[in-house]
Amino acid sequence: QTNAISATLYPKLSYDPIDDFAPISLIGREPGVLVVHPSLPVKTFQEFVAYVKERPGRIDYASSGNGSGQHLFVALLASMTGMKMNHVPYRGSGQATADLLGGQVQVSIPGTAGMVGHIKAGKLRALAVTGAKRSPQLPDVPTVMESGVPGYEAYVWMGLLAPKGTPAPIIDKLFRELTQVLATSEVKTYMASAGIEIVGSTPPEFGAFFRSEKELWARVIRETGAKID
């Protein structure tokens, strides 16, 4: 995912994050979860959107950094719902989570797995997950699409790439071997515990997905003006 975002976020890179690589497979993806501090008087996604719209520019959302997935996931959601919130970028997810738990900021969309414990302990309230379907770790939490925002779908994802120009037989061999590894019970168990959905797409499928992600986040970056100084 970093490459798809970096293609726009870092315009002066010495390499092309897309065209200088050959896609092998989308390994897996993890949805984010929209969480709020319990002091925010909302119980559902719909209540949250209404609450924020009534207070434009008065609600703060945390991210692990400017241009990070957490930043762009919220920015995309705000764009699609007409919400206006203040972005508070941190230097990493640790401090962002600490301030969210402490109530210094009210909203964030971090990865699902790391938030399950806080949600179950009542320290954070989950309103929606960002994937196309509900998370097995949070089966009672609806998706953003279920909650009334058609087309909203966002993941933290990982894929396998090779250098541009890698011969097709090698790409095919790596894909076949990766597919075998992803099918093992050990990997399935680990991925499930980490909240990651195994995908294992083909090289052409991953290439198309990679470019669609670049286009999506390029649009969000342009709209938000996100940049790395």
Rank of each mutant, 00 (worst) to 15 (best):
A183N: 12
A192P: 04
E186Q: 12
M191P: 00
A208D: 10
T184I: 13
K188F: 00
E205K: 06
K188N: 13
L178D: 04
V199F: 03
A192R: 11
V187S: 07
G195D: 05
L174S: 08
G200S: 08
K173R: 13
P204C: 13
A183K: 11
P204W: 09
S185E: 15
F175M: 02
F175V: 01
G200L: 03
T184G: 01
I196H: 09
E205H: 04
A192I: 04
T189V: 10
I196Y: 08
Y190V: 14
F206M: 04
G200M: 04
V187W: 05
A194V: 09
E205P: 02
F175L: 04
L178N: 09
L174R: 06
I198E: 01
I196E: 04
G195Y: 01
P204I: 13
G195V: 04
P204K: 14
F206T: 00
F175S: 09
E177R: 12
R176T: 10
G195W: 00
K188P: 12
E177K: 12
G195R: 03
A208V: 15
L174D: 03
M191F: 15
A208W: 00
K188S: 14
S185K: 14
K188I: 07
E186H: 05
I196L: 12
Q180E: 15
A183E: 12
G200Y: 04
P203N: 08
F175E: 05
T184S: 09
L182N: 03
G195S: 09
E186R: 06
S193V: 11
A192D: 10
A194L: 11
E197V: 12
I196N: 06
I198G: 03
K188E: 15
R176A: 14
A192N: 09
T202E: 07
E197C: 10
V199M: 03
L174V: 15
G200H: 05
A192L: 06
F175A: 13
P203G: 10
I198F: 03
I198R: 03
A192Q: 12
S201Y: 00
L182I: 07
T189L: 09
E197Q: 15
E205W: 01
G200R: 03
A208F: 03
G195I: 03
T189I: 08
E205A: 15
E177A: 10
A192Y: 08
Q180D: 15
K173Y: 04
E197Y: 00
T184E: 01
T179L: 01
T184K: 11
I198N: 02
G207N: 08
M191K: 05
M191S: 10
V199Y: 02
E177F: 11
M191T: 05
E177P: 02
Y190Q: 15
A194R: 14
A183S: 12
A194D: 09
V181P: 06
Q180C: 05
M191W: 14
T184C: 07
V199H: 01
F175W: 14
S193T: 13
T179S: 14
S193W: 15
A183Q: 12
T189K: 12
G200A: 11
P203K: 03
